[in-house]
Simulated scan of single mutants.
Amino acid sequence: MKQFFFAWIAICFIALPLSAQEIKILTFNILHGERADKPSTPSLAELANLLIQIQPEVIGLQEVDSMTLRSKAIYGEPIDLIRNLSRETGYKGYFGRAMEYDSGAYGNGVLVKKGSNYHTLNLPSPAGGEVRGIAWVKAELKTLEEFYFGSTHLCHEFEANRKAQLDSILSYADSLDKPVVWVGDLNFTPDSPEYSLIPSHWKEAGAEAGVLQNTYGSSENGARIDYIWYDSRKFELVEYKVLTNITFSDHYPVWAVLRMKKQEE
C-alpha cells in the first residue's frame, strides 16, 4: 500500500522535462522526525522516500533535531536527521543549528543537489523566547547558474520577534550577490502585520498562484503559515502546490517551481 501511495505521488509530478533554468523547491516542517498521527513513530524513511520520488533541486526543512534525546526516544539512538536524510537520498545536507536542545541541537536544514557556502544566520529575539536562525546555501544549477536558498522557522510566541527576524532575513537577502529564494514556517498568516511588511519585490508563491490552502493542521481547520518567497526581479513562478496527501507531519509540504529570469547584459 505504501509503495502504491508513493508511486501515485511520483505520477503526480511527471511532466515534460524542466529546462535547466527551472528550479523545483520544497519546504516542509517535519515535526522533528516524528509522525503526527502516530506519536513516537519515526517518519524519516517516508520523508526520504518522498524526496527521492519528487526530486526537488532544493529542500528547506524546519523543526530539525540533531543528536537529541528526543530523537533517541523516537529512533532508539540520538540521530542527526539531516545527515541521515543525506545518506538515504543522495542530497548534500546542512543542519543550521538555532539552539541547544535536549542534549543536542534544534534548528533548520537544507538539502541540495549541488551547493556551497553553507552557513547559518542567527536571528534576533528582542522579546525573548526561543532562539531562531536561518540556514543558507548557495545552490548551483546544471547550467552553473547560482542562487541563494534559505530555510527558517520564525518565533511562534511574539510578533515583535517575528518582525525583527523578518527584517534581519530581508536585509541579509538584499545584500547577497546572487538571486535569492527563502522558505519556511513563519508562524504568521497572510492577514498578519508581519506579512504586510515584506517588500513588494518579494513574492509569495501561494498568493501568486492563487492557491490559498492551509499548510498547517488539517486542510479544513488549520492555517497557512508555510511559505516560499522569491525575488520577483530574478524569478517567475511556474507552479505551486500544497501536498495535502502527505500527512505524517502536522504541516504539509509546500512545493513550487520557479524559472530564473534571463538577466540583461
Rank of each mutant, 00 (worst) to 15 (best):
R259P: 00
L166Y: 03
V137Y: 10
Y252K: 13
C155Y: 01
P39Q: 06
L170G: 06
G33W: 08
Y94I: 12
S43Q: 12
A139I: 00
Q213G: 03
A45Q: 10
L31Y: 12
M99F: 03
T247C: 03
D65M: 01
K114C: 09
L26E: 01
F6T: 07
E34H: 06
E46H: 05
A207C: 01
Q62Y: 01
K138M: 07
R87S: 08
F158K: 14
V181K: 09
E264D: 12
A48S: 10
L197K: 13
K163C: 02
N161S: 04
F147D: 01
Y252L: 08
R162Y: 10
V238K: 12
R70Q: 06
V257F: 02
R162H: 06
L243W: 05
A45T: 14
Q53H: 09
V58N: 12
D177M: 03
I228P: 06
E239N: 02
V110Q: 06
L31N: 11
I74D: 04
G104H: 00
E88F: 14
K72V: 01
V257E: 11
V242T: 12
V183Y: 11
V238M: 03
G206F: 11
S151C: 00
D177T: 15
S151D: 02
W229T: 04
G210K: 01
K261Y: 07
N187W: 06
A7K: 11
I198F: 09
V254W: 02
W182G: 01
Y172C: 09
K114I: 00
N221E: 12
A256P: 14
I25Y: 02
R259I: 03
L121S: 13
L81Y: 07
K163V: 14
T215E: 13
L141T: 04
P56M: 08
L176A: 08
K113M: 15
V211M: 10
L197D: 14
G133Y: 00
G133A: 15
D191K: 12
I225W: 07
H156G: 00
I246Y: 12
I198W: 04
I246E: 06
N214M: 07
Y230A: 02
L16G: 10
S116N: 11
S196V: 06
Q213C: 01
R132V: 03
L69R: 05
A207V: 04
Q53I: 05
P17E: 02
I23G: 10
F248L: 08
Y195T: 05
S19E: 05
T89I: 03
A173T: 07
Y252M: 09
I198S: 07
T143V: 02
G107Y: 07
R224L: 13
L123D: 02
Q21L: 10
K2A: 15
L243V: 03
L26F: 00
I59R: 02
R83A: 13
Y227A: 01
P199I: 04
K113A: 03
T152L: 05
G109S: 12
I30F: 03
S125R: 06
G107D: 03
S40P: 03
N187M: 12
D185A: 13
R224K: 15
A209D: 10
D65N: 11
K24V: 12
T189Y: 13
A7E: 15
C12M: 15
V112F: 00
K114R: 05
I25P: 07
V181H: 08
M67F: 11
